[in-house]
């Protein structure tokens, strides 16, 4: 093999890069692990989450009253938005028309959680009922979407869809 007489040269750029990486490694370690002020991954997460929380507007924190919400029932735009959200998120468990399936019937007068006011529905949608399999939607959809889908659900009351699931919960007259 010709390689018996190789050149003795070395590539300087590669060597400089190598040593630079080693020096960087020491600096990085010192910064993050010997009190150099670098945040741990846990601290970094905490500060990022706090920043996100601080940036949320009031509408994300559930400041509405039932009066504001009832206005949505006569707001066609809000109901259309609510219907779209319902079809995308709720229909898989509560049926296309709210008749109930895995989840309870949403069209009768019986309520398991709360008294059937829009604000009660908002509360359930927002925080979920995890023990029963209802997810919390507050991280998935916006505050206004939660409001309009809740209004849409309340608007279904008395619609008597086909294949309705038997009533569950307490009757609200």
């Amino acid at each position: 093999m010709k390689s018996k007489h190789p050149s003795l040269g070395t590539n300087t750029t590669a060597l400089v890069t190598f040593f630079a990486a080693i020096i960087f490694a020491f600096i990085y370690w010192i910064h993050f692990h010997t009190g150099g002020g670098g945040l741990s991954t846990t601290e970094e997460l905490k500060s990022d989450l706090a920043a996100i929380e601080a940036s949320k507007p009031a509408s994300q924190k559930g400041a509405e009253t039932e009066v504001d919400l009832n206005a949505l029932l006569s707001d066609a735009n809000a109901l259309n938005q609510g219907q779209a959200v319902y079809a995308a998120r709720c229909a898989a468990c509560h049926g296309q028309n709210g008749e109930g399936q895995i989840g309870p019937n949403l069209t009768d007068n019986f309520w398991i959680h709360g008294g059937g006011q829009i604000a009660d529905v908002v509360q359930v949608v927002r925080t979920g009922v995890t023990a029963k399999g209802m997810p919390a939607w507050d991280t998935m959809i916006s505050g206004s979407e939660i409001n309009s889908v809740s209004a849409y659900i309340v608007s279904l009351k008395g619609s008597n869809p086909a294949n309705a699931k038997a009533a569950e919960g307490t009757e609200v007259k």
């Binding site: 190789p6 050149s7 070395t10 590539n11």
Partner: peptide, 17 residues
Amino acid sequence: IPKVANRPVYSYRLSII
């Protein structure tokens, strides 16, 4: 590569490092 090109390896020192 040295076989096919019929040339010696570029750098012996580099290969050690």
